[in-house]
């Protein structure tokens, strides 16, 4: 594992901790898209089917369990927690995310490395992760004002994707036979989706102003 991959995993972990902190400390999930969180839950469950069949390292196994557990916990809180669920922006979070699930699954049926149960679900999870942030970005754009923790959550998620691209570049030059075009193409798409957000985050940081996204 190289330093970029590790930095990517850590920023991913930090983003989840920021989200948990926001929900726990403020007992509020305003500004957070339940649709995006549900998509992440599906992404991790579909991708980590290999938990039962393949062992790569203790690190990988622990991280997989943390990602599955935390995404399901957030979804549970937003849906069922007596206090937290009251602050859910139900009327703004209207993205029809089931179309993304269907579309990505169809794509995975046709574009995969090997036509097997696990490989199709793996490809599906990669495609779905690439677009899972869309409901969240649209929710932020519609509500305009973004609170600090929500802004940092999305910032760290974007940083995670950026580091993974550096990781692939590093691996491309240091490993023989490194080819994983499904991950790389999807990863580029996924990172590109954050470009706009990064831009406005940078502007607000430079001006020392509250983050606002244009409608």
């Amino acid at each position: 594992m190289n330093i970029f991959r590790f930095a990517g995993d850590m920023t991913h972990l930090i983003s989840i901790l920021v989200l948990l902190l926001k929900v726990y400390a403020t007992k509020s999930c305003s500004g957070i898209s339940l649709k995006t969180q549900e998509l992440y839950g599906i992404v991790f469950l579909a991708r980590y089917l290999d938990l039962f069949t393949d062992f790569i390292s203790v690190y990988n196994t622990v991280m997989k369990l943390v990602f599955i557990g935390s995404s399901l916990a957030i979804v549970w809180c937003m849906r069922f927690h007596r206090v937290v669920k009251r602050s859910y922006d139900r009327d703004v979070d209207t993205f029809r995310h089931y179309f993304l699930v269907g579309g990505c699954f169809l794509l995975a049926l046709f574009v995969h490395e090997k036509f097997s149960f696990r490989e199709v679900f793996w490809a599906f999870s990669i495609y779905l992760e690439a677009v899972a942030i869309l409901p969240q970005l649209i929710l932020l754009q519609r509500s305009g004002n973004v609170d600090n923790l929500t802004g940092q959550y999305v910032l760290f998620l974007g940083a995670y994707r950026g580091f993974y691209i550096l990781n692939w570049i590093y691996r491309y030059f240091t490993e023989d036979q490194f080819s994983r075009w499904i991950s790389c193409v999807s990863g580029l798409v996924q990172t590109a989706l954050y470009a706009d957000f990064f831009y406005y985050y940078f502007i607000s940081w430079k001006n020392n102003a509250k983050l606002k996204l244009p409608a």
Binding site: D50, T53, I56, M63
Partner: peptide
């Protein structure tokens, strides 16, 4: 195709 270990990332 080198098998499932190709999926060593998270």
């Amino acid at each position: 195709y080198s098998g499932y270990r190709a999926h060593d990332e998270l």
